[in-house]
Design a protein around this nucleic acid. Structure first.
Length: 855
RNA sequence: GCGGGCGUGGUGGAAUGGUAGACACGCCAGACUUAGAAUCUGGUGACGCAAGUCGUGGGGGUUCAAGUCCCUUCGCCCGCACCA
């Protein structure tokens, strides 16, 4: 009687077995080559979603595959556990953030365990645990000492209702995302990490990250935004002050027609104090907010200060000084010179305010006498005109000469500036890692001594008022100054949660030691050989981690600069969305797809509007819960579906049909092995020589599949690997069962199929492996090796073309010469038919590939 | 605007310049079933009775040979965006 495929039973059994045997517990071991595979750790929201299932399935395939290849594999899991949602839950549900977070962790851990991931749970960490964050505090002290952490005044988005700082992405159309209050630009003292200290290195080293997606490297390159130029000093007529500007186009200096200051430039502020009109203009600019989106839509506006600047190269030429809303204080010096002929922004501004437009670069092949600028600035290469001593030079040559002249005169110097800014890490929030310093009236900022770490969050806090609970806490912040022992106050800011995730990969190497990382452990395990996660972290998380690793190297914790040798960014999981007639979003399970193609509400039968496929999100309810799929079909089916069909870097459309297809395949595998069509010899049986041709062909298929799947897994082509395995099992279904030795070949094929699919669907693979008569788990079985003699076929099929069009195929021995191939091709009836009455001009023969007859 | 990616059957997707559509989903027909579900067998790019012709967004080019390389154009997606 058929034993049915019962994933529920199988999966529970093997998960318990793996855990009991401690198969995934890893020890630091120098004898085998190491392999560190890591997926981006999750935020403990309480439930896993399909994005997690995809991410962790991909990582688990890599981990299991590398383990089978003989690597000592580190594959850990942890929790990115600090952050605002816990405080929101505390406020809304009256539950303490710690309790809420640890509860969520427990729930998600249980869900993850049901996926059958080959994780070393003994290394689990949670960033909200003092055992983790005390080391982060120690690292901060190291960075402080090394000059990589500092405090400065900076503009922030301030929500006056919630009394907190908002990140740019939390400001929507100039208002706080939750309170709806108009966000203010406020100057606050904030802690910063000096990421700009490594700007050059972070940029230059990108090109060495060969196993990173090109796209991510480009995004980081743009983000760092290096540009080479000059810092120039302009004197102001009738004033003792000077204005410094930054430019990359000092060769266009002869075309300068104005200077523009940022609304937040110190000189602007000084002038505004005496000029109400300017003060109003600055206020208007600031109201727009700091969010990039707001700036984007702002039209170019300026305010003439009445000041005149002296042109540094043209005696007697004076340039008006404006304050302009498009000049950023954070970039360069916060002031520019405008050359309207060769910069579109400057041109727009000049046209609006009636300023001169002087062309100083003539495009190649254009008569300088007739060259004029209309609505478009000319930014290309060319020859300088109207430019005094650099007339006739190229852009590069002009730059060089101007730079030499101005540097010689002490009016400027060459400089490289970056778009990248130092990383502000202060957050006025409770549920984060406390920044371990004390503010003392007499000593200033005093680091908390290391023997007093960790600075632990107080537990008795309330969330019924806006603002930072640490600030309001009656006693927590009051401590004696560590230096002078007089009353002082703790820093009440906590770290941005991106800090927590910037070094967790290092902590996993020695998760329980009483130093942040142990040298021997990180020297052995780092870098992470394969990191896997979402593209949404292409910039911030990855850049911060690269910074942290460098800073930790400065502090002597690690010896390397790049934490992630290989990076894979997976696509997202998408689903159609559904809305009823009232526009209310519906969950997929509330919707019925009728035979006639109509889509209706399952209960009411009313028509449903089907939206496009997009990323699963709670707000649109186009989500499918992993637990439901695992309950219904099992983890192996969910994993197989995640890997089939779509390449992992692309978005994946969730479909019920696809899940059913994966299920059907596993069920058929089960049947193939439960009741093989021919009796199998016992495990360990050696296949005898003298198989007939079809059986030999099957063996070739088996070994070709080993080679193909191995290469597919190496290259992250999981969808192809699945297809190859299906091809193999399709082939095994058609075996000539009556031939002598069929049972032995079938055994070989089934065993290989099970071993190849093992990394993807580990539970059923172990169950079938046992069913095939083996005592041990596949986890302990090495990856199969293809027999090279069987991979190489001894006959090949050549395509035969006439004038490039396929006319037939011929089968030849693997070793054949051109003449033989040509003769065989010429004998093909279909070729003869096509050649009838035509003269053969030449014949192209590529042995083993193709014969092309040209007429 | 700048940068990057992608356009292949009804659908997801395969194809070191060398037999386009592997492997699936769906669909069609048949078998088994009281029926449905499940399962099994066969078929399935388009046109054509067939021989065959046409087919990888459009146009052009290189080549004996182009989904693949080059030019051009259209469309979609993503990232960045007043960065001086």
């Amino acid at each position: 009687m058929t034993e049915r495929y019962n994933p529920r039973e199988i999966e529970a059994h093997w998960q318990a077995y793996w855990e009991r045997e401690g198969l995934f517990r890893v020890i630091d071991d120098d004898t085998r080559p190491k392999y560190y595979v890591l997926e981006m750790f999750p935020y403990p929201s309480g439930r896993i979603h399909m994005g997690h299932v995809r991410n962790y399935t991909l990582g688990d395939v890599v981990a299991r595959y590398k383990r089978a290849l003989g690597f000592n594999v580190l594959h850990p899991m942890g929790w990115d556990a600090f952050g605002l949602p816990a405080e929101n839950a505390a406020r809304d549900q009256k539950v303490h953030p710690a309790k809420w977070t640890y509860g969520n962790i427990a729930a998600m851990r249980a869900e993850l365990k049901r996926m059958g991931l080959s994780l070393d749970w003994s290394r689990e960490i949670a960033t909200c645990h003092p055992g983790y964050y005390q080391h982060q505090q120690a690292l901060f002290l190291d960075f402080l000492k090394a000059g990589l952490a500092y405090r400065k005044e900076s503009f922030v988005n301030w929500d006056p209702v919630d009394q907190t700082v908002l990140a740019n992405e939390q400001v929507i159309e100039g208002r706080g995302w939750r309170s709806g209050a108009v966000v203010e630009r406020r100057k606050l003292s904030q802690w910063f990490f000096k990421i700009t200290a490594f700007a050059d290195d972070l940029l230059a080293t990108l090109s060495t990250l060969e196993r990173w997606p090109e796209r991510v490297r480009l995004m980081q390159e743009n983000w760092i935004g290096r540009s080479e130029g000059m810092r120039l000093r302009f004197e102001l007529a009738g004033w003792s002050e000077t204005v410094e500007i930054f430019t990359t186009r000092h060769d266009t200096l002869f075309g300068a027609s104005f200077l523009a200051l940022s609304p937040n430039h110190p000189l602007t502020e000084k002038l505004a104090a005496a000029d109400p009109g300017l003060a109003a203009f600055v206020a208007e600019c600031n109201r727009i907010g700091t969010s990039e989106a707001a700036i984007e839509h702002a039209e170019k506006k300026g305010y003439d200060t009445g000041l005149k600047a002296r042109h540094p190269l043209i005696e007697g030429r004076l340039l008006p000084v404006h304050v302009a809303n498009f000049v950023l204080m954070d970039y360069g010096t916060g002031a520019i010179f405008g050359c309207p002929a060769h910069d579109q922004r400057d041109l727009d501004f000049a046209r609006k305010y009636g300023l001169d437009v002087i062309p100083v670069v003539a495009p190649p092949g254009i008569d300088p006498a007739t060259f004029a600028i209309a609505d478009e600035a000319y930014v290309g290469e060319g020859t300088h005109i109207n430019s005094g001593f650099i007339d006739g030079t190229s852009v590069a040559e002009g730059k060089e000469r101007v730079a030499q002249r101005l540097e010689g005169a002490g009016r400027g110097k060459r400089e490289t500036v970056f778009r990248l800014r130092d990383w502000g890490v202060s957050r006025q929030r409770y549920w984060g890692c406390p920044i371990p310093v004390v503010h003392c009236e007499s000593c200033g900022i005093v680091p908390v001594p290391r023997d007093q770490l960790p600075v632990v969050l107080p537990e008795d806090v309330s969330f019924d008022q806006p603002g930072n609970p640490l600030e309001r806490h009656p006693s927590w912040k009051h401590v004696p100054c560590p230096a002078c022992k007089r009353p002082a106050t703790r820093e009440t800011d906590t770290f941005d949660t991106f800090v927590d995730s910037s070094w967790y990969f290092g902590r996993f190497c020695s998760p329980r030691t009483d130093e942040p990382v142990t040298r021997a452990a990180v020297d052995y395990w780092l870098p992470v050989d394969q990191y896997i996660g979402g593209i949404e972290h292409a910039i911030l998380h990855l850049l911060y981690s690269r910074f942290f690793t460098r800073a930790m190297r400065v502090a002597g914790h690690v010896k390397l600069a790049e934490p992630f040798a290989g990076l894979f960014t997976q696509g997202m999981v998408c689903h159609e969305s559904y809305q009823d007639q009232g526009g209310k979003w519906l969950y997929p399970e509330e919707v019925a797809h009728l035979q006639d193609g109509r889509v209706v509400h399952a209960e009411s039968g009313r028509p449903v509007k089907v939206g496009r496929r997009e990323v699963m999100s709670k707000s649109k309810k186009n989500v499918v819960a992993p637990s439901v799929i695992i309950d219904g079909y099992g983890a192996d089916t969910a994993r197989l579906f995640m890997l089939s069909d779509s390449p992992p870097e692309r978005d994946l459309d969730w479909s019920d049909a696809g899940v059913k297809g994966a299920w059907r395949y596993l069920a058929s595998l089960w049947r193939m092995m439960s009741e093989p069509k021919v009796t199998l010899p016992p495990a360990g049986h050696i296949i005898a020589d003298g198989l007939d041709a079809p059986l030999l062909e099957t063996r070739r298929l088996i070994h070709r599949t080993i080679a193909a799947v191995s290469s597919d897994l190496d290259r992250f082509h999981f969808n192809r690997a699945v297809a190859r395995i299906r091809e193999l099992t399709n082939g095994l279904e058609d075996l000539p069962f009556k031939s002598p030795g069929a049972g032995a070949v079938l055994r070989e094929g089934l065993e290989i199929a099970v071993r190849l699919i093992g990394p993807m669907t580990p539970h059923i693979a172990d169950a079938l492996w046992q069913k095939l008569g083996h005592a041990t788990s596949l986890v302990r079985v090495p990856w199969p090796k293809a027999d090279p003699n069987l991979v190489a076929a001894d006959t090949v099929t050549l395509a035969v073309q006439v004038n490039g069009k396929l006319r037939g195929t011929i089968v030849l021995p693997k070793a054949h010469d051109k003449a033989k191939a040509e003769a065989a091709a010429m004998a093909e009836p279909s070729v003869l038919r096509a050649l009838e009455g035509k003269a053969v001009k030449k014949v192209i023969v590529v042995p083993g590939k193709i014969v092309n007859v040209v007429v």
